[in-house]
Amino acid sequence: MNSQILSARLTFTKVTLDDWELIRSVYSNPTLMKHIGSTMSDEDIRKNFEKELAPWSMESTHWLTWIIREASTGTEVGLISICTRNREKPTAEVGFILQEAYTGKGYATEAIKAILDFAADTFGFQKFTAVCSEEHIASRRVLEKAGMNLDEIVPDSTQINGKWVNDCFYSLER
């Protein structure tokens, strides 16, 4: 698998042991996790992190995660991941989190497009899905700008910090 993926302004490298601090800071940050889920303990973050370090194939049940960096500076922008959801019709779910300082610059849309192209070309995925809370308007806009279509809004689908939220289910077929 390519060690680095490139887009116009970003680079993507598979997560490594050296990325622990970034991973820990993202998943323990209440602001970044506000629309995703509860913040996680270091122990839970470490368990997930160790899974993501494992080799990945389409048969894997864990996420394949890349660190997103600005190509010009090498600065860490955030994370983007895919996970196989259907092997019959090769389908992957995509998820992303950007650090607050890098939102509103088009980086998330650029990252999704680059990773979907890579995943389709490299692994043969034919369909991509994504889920976000209905109230997370910025993520919904990003998914739509990346070409994904809103398929369904499911009321009271996920509980985040003790509150039930509606989930928006998106997809894109290649």
Rank of each mutant, 00 (worst) to 15 (best):
I97H: 07
T11G: 07
T31C: 04
W164V: 10
L116H: 01
A138M: 11
G95R: 07
D19I: 09
F12M: 08
I80Q: 07
E135Q: 13
R174D: 06
Q4C: 11
L53R: 05
A8K: 13
A101T: 11
I36L: 13
S72N: 15
Y102A: 09
K14E: 07
W63I: 01
L22D: 01
T39C: 11
S41R: 07
N29P: 05
L150E: 08
A108M: 10
I153D: 00
V142K: 04
G74I: 15
E50T: 12
K163C: 14
L116C: 06
K89S: 15
L143M: 14
Y107M: 06
S60I: 08
T122H: 07
E21C: 04
M1G: 13
E152Y: 11
I5W: 02
W56G: 04
E52Q: 13
W20A: 01
L53K: 01
S72G: 11
A111Q: 04
A114M: 04
T84Q: 11
T158R: 09
P155E: 12
A8R: 08
H136I: 08
W20G: 03
V131E: 11
T91R: 05
L143P: 05
A71S: 14
C132M: 06
G95N: 06
S72R: 14
F123M: 03
G162Q: 11
L79M: 12
S57I: 09
R174G: 06
D151A: 12
E76D: 15
D151I: 12
D18C: 08
T109Q: 05
V165Y: 14
P155C: 11
S81V: 06
I112G: 04
L32D: 05
K113G: 03
N161G: 13
Q126H: 11
E43L: 10
F96V: 07
M148W: 02
T65Y: 00
D44C: 03
I68T: 03
D18E: 13
A130H: 05
V154W: 09
K47S: 13
M40F: 08
K14H: 09
K145C: 06
S60W: 02
T75D: 15
I115N: 00
E135V: 15
C168R: 02
S57K: 06
T61F: 05
T65I: 12
R24F: 12
A114Q: 00
T129I: 15
N161T: 13
L22Q: 01
T61D: 12
M58E: 08
P55K: 06
N2L: 11
I36R: 00
E134D: 14
R140N: 13
A111D: 01
N149D: 08
W164N: 13
I82L: 10
T11S: 11
R141A: 15
E110C: 02
H35E: 05
L53Q: 05
D156R: 14
G124A: 08
T65L: 07
Y102L: 10
T73H: 09
P155K: 14
S133A: 15
W164E: 07
N2P: 11
K51C: 12
E144H: 03
R46I: 10
D156F: 15
S25C: 09
A119C: 08
Y27G: 06
P155T: 13
K105D: 00
V142L: 05
S7T: 10
T31P: 01
T91L: 10
P30L: 12
W66T: 03
I68A: 03
V77I: 14
G37W: 01
Q4F: 08
T73G: 12
C132R: 02
T16G: 00
E59D: 14
F96N: 02
E50K: 09
I23N: 01
K163W: 01
L22A: 03
